[in-house]
Measured scan of single mutants.
Amino acid sequence: MAAGGDHGSPDSYRSPLASRYASPEMCFVFSDRYKFRTWRQLWLWLAEAEQTLGLPITDEQIQEMKSNLENIDFKMAAEEEKRLRHDVMAHVHTFGHCCPKAAGIIHLGATSCYVGDNTDLIILRNALDLLLPKLARVISRLADFAKERASLPTLGFTHFQPAQLTTVGKRCCLWIQDLCMDLQNLKRVRDDLRFRGVKGTTGTQASFLQLFEGDDHKVEQLDKMVTEKAGFKRAFIITGQTYTRKVDIEVLSVLASLGASVHKICTDIRLLANLKEMEEPFEKQQIGSSAMPYKRNPMRSERCCSLARHLMTLVMDPLQTASVQWFERTLDDSANRRICLAEAFLTADTILNTLQNISEGLVVYPKVIERRIRQELPFMATENIIMAMVKAGGSRQDCHEKIRVLSQQAASVVKQEGGDNDLIERIQVDAYFSPIHSQLDHLLDPSSFTGRASQQVQRFLEEEVYPLLKPYESVMKVKAELCL
């Protein structure tokens, strides 16, 4: 049975990233139509530049190519590739079939990587351009969430054990800070992308030097003109047959890092959902379990974690691919890159769409948070109580021993009897502590235990987050809708 299948058929496997999760716009960027249309555009740009620099290419040939950029006979191309065992030459023939007058000058002087690699770089750039505003929107939604809850005390956790208090907004800023680093890295790697350009079979530009009869300047002009037509500021000066596969490492490393950030955020949300302090959106008709109707599973956060793990592992592909590119190139890269580049971007696209949807509907339960604080705060307040007693004339050592005994009794009630923490009640009825009984409410005010959390939130948002989001103001209103 021949390899390949009808990918629109229910009898043929289709990647869930495309069929179930990723956005239509990201799927289109990695589609065959987008790819092969870009090949034709690159052939047109090459012909236009070659004509401008004096090669015998007519206006009629150029116009014929322009008129057929979208006229792609995919069936013919597939048949040609089956016959020739070469995808680029299959599309040269297919393009030439609908451009008979231009057929002889299509791909003039070029090698397969002229269309293959340059198209990949265009796709990487455009895919990054799709991700950047999506990530900015996630940051914006979380920034709104953090600002609104900047002063809401909550129990902090280290080692997932109760620690000092923080605020809900401050905790959210930990998430935002990681995503801001990801946004900066995505922008950097996007701006650092260079075009492969017009380089020939081993990167020496020998074929173009021959076409222009040894004119170095025209060869350099050709490279520059096509690079500018493709919208790049610069091209690699040095290439082998391909652009260095280190570029793929750079791009997928940034995406993998984004995956790590999203995994951490969504894990926190899942843990908070278990504590009943916070939940992701839950639709009115949504079913959490087929057997347990009360369940409210954090399905979206779980999906993000599941896909983020996949995204983090994909960076190993370009690392290994770059390491086995012998001399000017081997074909070890080809099949692998067809999979890992598309999957990385479709996965990143999915987790950003999902995280935006989550961040637009996060639900906080202040009463649950308050109750958990009441359970733990008495123990945390013991040092403040000791200091207040010393100020009232008591002995630190005597007070410490009193607190120690009462704390152990209260802990026994919590752990052995399943009761509430009654340390404060014990202190309130103990005559030894009568000098500070009137101060206990103040000493137990949760806001006095959150330090500068709310001020940190305000400063972080104003100095770091809002300036970073400013270039994306025009796209901030787009909502994230999930079908599944």
Results as ranks from 00 to 15, higher is better:
Ala2Leu: 14
Ala3Leu: 11
His7Tyr: 14
His7Asn: 15
Ser12Lys: 14
Arg14Thr: 15
Arg14Trp: 12
Arg14Ser: 15
Arg14Pro: 13
Pro16Arg: 12
Ser19Ile: 04
Arg20His: 00
Tyr21Glu: 00
Ser23Gln: 08
Ser23Val: 07
Pro24Gln: 11
Pro24Asp: 14
Pro24Ser: 13
Met26Leu: 08
Phe30Gly: 01
Arg37Thr: 11
Arg37Phe: 11
Arg37Glu: 11
Trp39Ser: 09
Trp39Asp: 00
Trp43Arg: 00
Trp45Thr: 06
Trp45Arg: 04
Ala47Gly: 09
Glu50Asp: 02
Glu50Ser: 10
Leu55Lys: 13
Pro56Thr: 13
Ile57Leu: 07
Asp59Gln: 10
Glu60Asp: 10
Gln63His: 09
Glu64Leu: 11
Glu64Val: 13
Met65Ala: 00
Lys66Ala: 11
Ser67Tyr: 13
Asn68Ile: 06
Leu69Met: 13
Asn71Ala: 09
Ile72Glu: 10
Met76Lys: 14
Glu79Cys: 13
Glu80Leu: 07
Glu80Gly: 10
Glu81Arg: 00
Lys82Trp: 12
Arg83Cys: 12
Leu84Met: 08
Asp87Met: 00
Asp87Ser: 03
Val88Leu: 10
Met89Cys: 07
His91Gln: 15
Gly96Met: 08
His97Pro: 03
Cys98Lys: 13
Lys101Leu: 15
Lys101Met: 13
Ala102Lys: 00
Ala103Asn: 12
Gly104His: 11
Ile105Met: 10
Ile106Ala: 07
Ile106Glu: 00
Thr111Gly: 03
Ser112Ile: 01
Cys113Lys: 00
Val115Phe: 00
Asp117Glu: 05
Leu121Val: 15
Leu121Asp: 01
Ile123Ser: 12
Arg125Asp: 06
Ala127Phe: 05
Leu128Ser: 11
Leu130Gly: 08
Leu131Ile: 10
Pro133Tyr: 15
Leu135Phe: 13
Leu135Arg: 02
Ser140Gly: 14
Phe145Ala: 06
Phe145Asp: 15
Glu148Arg: 12
Arg149Gln: 12
Leu152Cys: 11
Leu152Gly: 03
Thr154Asn: 05
Leu155His: 05
Gly156Gln: 04
Phe157Tyr: 10
Ala163Cys: 02
Gln164Trp: 00
Thr167Ser: 08
Thr167Ile: 04
Val168Lys: 02
Arg171Ser: 00
Trp175Thr: 03
Ile176Ala: 09
Leu179Asn: 02
Met181Ala: 10
Asp182Gly: 03
Leu183Gln: 09
Gln184Arg: 11
Leu186Phe: 13
Leu186Val: 13
Arg188Lys: 10
Arg188Pro: 00
Val189Phe: 07
Val189His: 07
Val189Lys: 12
Val189Thr: 12
Arg194Ser: 09
Arg194Tyr: 07
Phe195Ile: 10
Arg196Cys: 13
Gly197Cys: 08
Gly197Lys: 03
Val198Leu: 14
Lys199Ala: 15
Gly200Trp: 01
Thr201Met: 00
Gln205Arg: 00
Gln205Val: 07
Gln205Phe: 00
Phe208Ala: 04
Leu209Met: 08
Leu209Lys: 09
Gln210Leu: 07
Asp216Cys: 09
His217Phe: 12
Lys218Ala: 12
Glu220Ser: 11
Glu220Cys: 09
Glu220Pro: 01
Gln221Trp: 09
Leu222Met: 08
Leu222Ser: 01
Val226Leu: 15
Thr227Ser: 13
Lys233Gly: 12
Ala235Thr: 14
Phe236Tyr: 12
Arg245Ser: 02
Ile249Asn: 06
Ile249Val: 11
Leu252Glu: 04
Ser253Ala: 13
Val254Ser: 11
Leu255Val: 11
Ala256Cys: 07
Leu258Trp: 15
Leu258His: 13
Gly259Glu: 01
Gly259Met: 05
Ala260Pro: 05
Val262Lys: 02
Val262Tyr: 02
His263Arg: 04
Ile265Cys: 14
Arg270Leu: 00
Arg270Cys: 00
Leu271Cys: 07
Lys276Gly: 09
Glu277Tyr: 05
Pro281Glu: 13
Gln286Asp: 00
Ala291His: 03
Pro293His: 04
Lys295Cys: 01
Lys295Asn: 05
Arg296Asn: 09
Asn297Gly: 02
Arg303Ile: 01
Ala308Ser: 13
Leu311Val: 08
Met312Glu: 05
Val315Met: 14
Met316Asp: 08
Leu319Ser: 01
Thr321Lys: 01
Ala322Tyr: 13
Gln325Met: 13
Trp326Asp: 00
Phe327Asn: 07
Thr330Leu: 03
Thr330Met: 02
Thr330Glu: 00
Leu331Val: 09
Ser334Met: 05
Ser334Leu: 04
Ser334Lys: 04
Ile339Val: 14
Ile339Lys: 08
Ala344Lys: 01
Ala344His: 05
Leu346Ile: 15
Leu346Pro: 06
Asp349Glu: 08
Ile351Cys: 12
Thr354Ile: 15
Leu355Met: 14
Asn357Pro: 02
Ser359Glu: 07
Val363Ile: 14
Tyr365Phe: 11
Pro366His: 10
Val368Leu: 04
Arg371Thr: 05
Ile373Tyr: 04
Gln375Thr: 04
Pro378Ser: 06
Met380Ser: 02
Thr382Leu: 04
Ile385Leu: 15
Ile386Ser: 06
Ile386Gly: 05
Met387Glu: 00
Ala388Phe: 03
Ala388Trp: 06
Val390Thr: 08
Val390Arg: 02
Lys391Pro: 04
Gln397Gly: 09
Ile403Leu: 05
Ala410His: 05
Ser412Phe: 15
Ser412Glu: 14
Val413Glu: 13
Val414Glu: 02
Val414Ala: 04
Val414Leu: 07
Lys415Gln: 06
Gln416Lys: 10
Glu417Lys: 11
Asp422Arg: 06
Leu423Tyr: 08
Ile427Glu: 03
Gln428Tyr: 09
Val429Tyr: 07
Phe433Ile: 05
Phe433Pro: 03
Ser434Ile: 11
Ser434Glu: 13
Asp441Ala: 11
His442Gly: 13
His442Val: 15
Asp445Ser: 15
Asp445Met: 14
Pro446Cys: 05
Ser448Tyr: 14
Ser448Ala: 15
Ser448Leu: 15
Phe449Ile: 03
Thr450Lys: 07
Thr450His: 01
Gly451Tyr: 02
Leu461Asp: 05
Leu461Tyr: 05
Glu463Asn: 11
Tyr466Asp: 14
Tyr466Ile: 14
Leu469Cys: 14
Pro471Trp: 15
Tyr472Ile: 14
Cys483Glu: 13
